[in-house]
Design a protein around this nucleic acid. Structure first.
Lengths: 228, 228
DNA sequence: CACAAACATTTTATATACAATTTCATCGAT
DNA sequence: ATCGATGAAATTGTATATAAAATGTTTGTG
C-alpha cells in the first residue's frame, strides 16, 4: 500500500530495521535497556530518530516502552517466537479461507497461473526469485479477501516477521516443500473448500516456522529466565 | 499489557486519543491534511508530541503518512469500517477457537462463572458495568489461547476499535442480546467445539457491528468517492 | 499559449536545548 | 542494621531551532 520504494530511507527507518534485525538475530538480548541517547550515539544521529525508531519497534512488539521509563528489548524466547509464528499462520489461514469464499474467477485463474509459473524457479533452484514470488503469492491471497483492512494488517504482520524468517529462508529442499504445499492450498481454493485451504495454509506456515526453530536453538541455548 | 493506569497521560497520548475520537466520529473527514504545525497549534503543544501522535495513528491505520509528505486522514468509508469490524470478528473467532482447544479446566470454570455473574447486570440494566464485564470476558478468552502474542495483538485491536464501538454501546436491548450470544459461545466452549464457538463469536461481533452501521449511516450520507 | 526551469514558500526531518520525572545513592532516624 | 527521606544524577518528555525536501508560483523561452 504505501510506496516505500526508493525514497532514500529515513534515519528512523534505518535505525528501526537495524535494531529489528539484531533483536531477531538474538544479538540484542531480552531485557536489554535501550536508552535513546545511547542508541542515537551508536547510529551517529540525534535522539529524535532514535526515539521514533524505539516507538515503532514497540508497536511491533519487539521492545516494550513504559511511559517515562524507557525501552527494553521484549521477551523473545523460543515460546514467544513460536507464538508469533502461530499468529502469522492463523492470520494467513484466515485470509485464504476468506479468499476462497470471495475470490472472483479472474483472481482464481491468476493465482493458479502464478503457482504454475513458480515451478520453473523451483527447477532452476533460484532461491531468490522464488522468495519474491512467494511474497507475491501470499499478497495475492490477501488481496483476494476483498477486505482491505485485513489485507493491510496481514501484510504488515508479514513484514514484522520478515526478520525472523530470513534465517530460515530457503534451503532448496524447503523451496520444493513450499511449492508442494502451495499446490495443496491452490487445489483446495479451486475446489472452493475454504476450511481445507485454511488447514493447508496453517501447515504451510508452521512448516516454515519449524525450519526456523531448528536454526534458532543453536544460539538461544543460554536463554534467561522469565521474571513474571 | 503495560500499566496505563494513572500515569498522567503523555501529551502525545492525549492528542492521539483526541484525533482518534474525531476520526471515528467522522468529524475529521477522509483525506484531510494533518500537518504537524497545525495539529500542534490546535492542542497548544509543540510539534514533537503532535508528530508522535500522527505516527501512532498511522500504525492503527487511521491516518496515512507518506515519508516526507505529511499525514492525511485515512479512507474510513462504511466499507472500510465494515472491513475493520470483520477483522475484529475474525480475530476474536480465532481466539475463541484456540481457547476452546487449549483451555485448562480452571479457566473454563472461571469463564463460565463470569458469564453467570453478568446475568445480574443485565437484569439490573447496568450498562456501564456490563460494558466493563464484557471487556474482561473477552480478555479472559484471549488469555486462554495460551498464546501471549495473539493475546496482546487481539487486545490491541480491540483498543483500536474502541472509538468505533463507543457509538454502538449499549442500548439495554443490545445488552440482552449480547448476554444470549455469550451463552451460546460458552456452551460451545464447554462442549469443546472450537469451530462452533468461533462461528458463534463471529456472529456475536458482527451483530455488534451491525448496530454501529445503523448508527453511522446518518452522518456519512455525503461520503466522498474513492480515488483508487 | 504551452511548457519547463528557477526560485520562493511551506512542511517535514533532524538536531539541540530545556523541563520534568524517575532512579539511585547518601544520609539520618528509629 | 533496616527503613525511610532527601537530594543529586540520569533519562525521558517537550520545546525550539536548523537543515533538507517537496510544493507552488513565477518567469522566461519555444
Amino acid at each position: 500500500m504505501a510506496n516505500e520504494l526508493k525514497n532514500e530511507p529515513l534515519l528512523s527507518e534505518k535505525i528501526r530495521r537495524s535494531l529489528a534485525e539484531e533483536i531477531a538475530a538474538g544479538s540484542l538480548r531480552s531485557g536489554t535497556q535501550l536508552d535513546e541517547q545511547q542508541v542515537a550515539l551508536r547510529f551517529g544521529t540525534s535522539r529524535t530518530p532514535a526515539r521514533e525508531a524505539l516507538r515503532q519497534l514497540a508497536m511491533d512488539g519487539l521492545v516494550v516502552v513504559r511511559p517515562r521509563r524507557g525501552a527494553v528489548v521484549a521477551e523473545m524466547s523460543i515460546e514467544r517466537l513460536a507464538d508469533m509464528f502461530e499468529m502469522s499462520a492463523e492470520i494467513e489461514a484466515l485470509c485464504v479461507r476468506l479468499a476462497t469464499l470471495r475470490m472472483r474467477p479472474l483472481e482464481r485463474v491468476r493465482l493458479a497461473r502464478m503457482h504454475e509459473n513458480s515451478a520453473s524457479l523451483v527447477e532452476a533452484g533460484d532461491v531468490s526469485s522464488y522468495s519474491s514470488f512467494n511474497l507475491a503469492f501470499h499478497e495475492a491471497i490477501y488481496s483476494a479477501t476483498h477486505n482491505n483492512y485485513i489485507s493491510e494488517q496481514a501484510l504488515a504482520l508479514r513484514n514484522r516477521m520478515a526478520g525472523f524468517r530470513r534465517a530460515q529462508m530457503f534451503e532448496t529442499q524447503r523451496m520444493q516443500h513450499s511449492f508442494e504445499e502451495h499446490r495443496i492450498i491452490i487445489e483446495a481454493v479451486i475446489r472452493g473448500d475454504g476450511d481445507e485451504a485454511a488447514r493447508a495454509m496453517r501447515t504451510h506456515l508452521m512448516n516454515a516456522a519449524g525450519a526456523l526453530e531448528r536454526f534458532t536453538i543453536s544460539q538461544d541455548n543460554d536463554q534467561e529466565i522469565d521474571e513474571t
